[in-house]
Design a protein around this nucleic acid. Structure first.
Lengths: 202, 202
DNA sequence: GTCTATATATCGATAGAC
DNA sequence: GTCTATCGATATATAGAC
């Protein structure tokens, strides 16, 4: 399958991606220099320009890939469900995919959650568009649950953001050697999300 | 009452604080230059050093103040409650204070939530300490509710982070001319938080 | 306390040899 | 595709006149 219009997928370019992703996520885009990235790869800064046109192009390449993979991860999870699956299981699948991504691929998640402001205006707009579509896909699941009577929420847009935000925050503190496994983390977040759409007698 | 060991409270220093806070929050610490801040105040960059020793000192002054005011805001809200008030109302008061701060003073909130990494190591450690204490104060409310049987949670530490994270996210998207007033926003978040600690039959 | 002028450092990016 | 060398811009911060 042909590649989307990003740079060629050479071994060195992938090493640059990996080094830049880790450093952008850990130190921030502005605090990371082209010399830092090159040093991690074992080459000189000038050589980076044989693979990417600019520092911002590296950030956009990584951001765009991360957001597409986040969406693909959700699509995979939902596609495995039977078409007749109800909103509760659809919400659970979304939350498992969302939280799993934010734990397992936290560098990509941190990039998407905190470095969009360093993109060029044009790329920033595209990123916001992708984010809006992602949010809308959760909103649709919640709306369907409300329409069918399975969910009860006081404010659907706010509940959507709250569920996303709980999972997004995982990327800021999750560590592979932490108290909870990723599976446990996802399971707990499914319970939390279901509690938010299941207003019992309080 | 004598001032804590930050810089003197002169009119110009406060103008610098205001300009720096807004620009650090909107553009990020690294992307904001001393010239930018000075220009907003109507002076030259060199003159900033008559009021602050360094750019990082401005950031720390703002961050420290924001975190102390966030805690004071919570203390005020809890102090207004009768000592015999139960966990549900204590949690509600905490969430109202937390979300209200993140909406009403969103520049300060953004600083605390996304610019800690630009602090010096020593200041960063202090900030993390303040954050941990703040998180622990919510955890204590939840633990008390669980111990008394009013709350039911599957994982108290994770529930604590989830409630904080929902409110923290507000600072990223809230706008004064938005759909919900701050009071409405706080009320909705109280409902969300109570749902997370009130596991009814799902 | 503000200014002009500048020190010193480092940034992203380019030129051209190999 | 990598390197050395460097450009040009800009950053934080300082020195010293007023």
């Amino acid at each position: 399958m042909p590649q989307a219009p990003s740079k060629a997928r050479t071994a060195t370019a992938d090493e640059i991606r990996q080094a830049a992703l880790e450093q952008f996520a850990r130190s921030g885009y502005d605090a990371t220099t082209m010399r830092d990235i090159a040093s991690s790869v074992g080459i000189k800064a000038a050589s980076l320009y044989n693979h990417f046109d600019s520092k911002e192009e590296i950030l956009w390449d990584l951001t765009r890939a991360a957001m597409h993979e986040l969406a693909a991860n959700r699509d995979d999870a939902l596609a495995r469900l039977d078409p007749s699956t109800g909103p509760r299981e659809r919400l659970a699948a979304f939350v498992r995919a969302h939280v799993g991504f934010h734990a397992e691929r936290r560098y990509q998640a941190v990039l998407v959650n905190s470095q969009l402001g360093s993109l060029s205006r044009a790329h920033h707009r595209k990123a916001i568009g992708l984010r809006d579509v992602y949010e809308a896909s959760l909103k649709a699941i919640i709306d369907a649950g409300v329409a069918g009577g399975e969910f009860k929420v006081s404010d659907a847009p706010l509940t959507t953001l709250a569920i996303l935000q709980m999972g997004t925050g995982v990327s800021a503190w999750y560590r592979p050697d932490g108290r909870l496994s990723i599976d446990q983390l996802c399971a707990e977040h499914v319970k939390l999300a279901l509690a938010l759409v299941t207003r019992g007698p309080q």
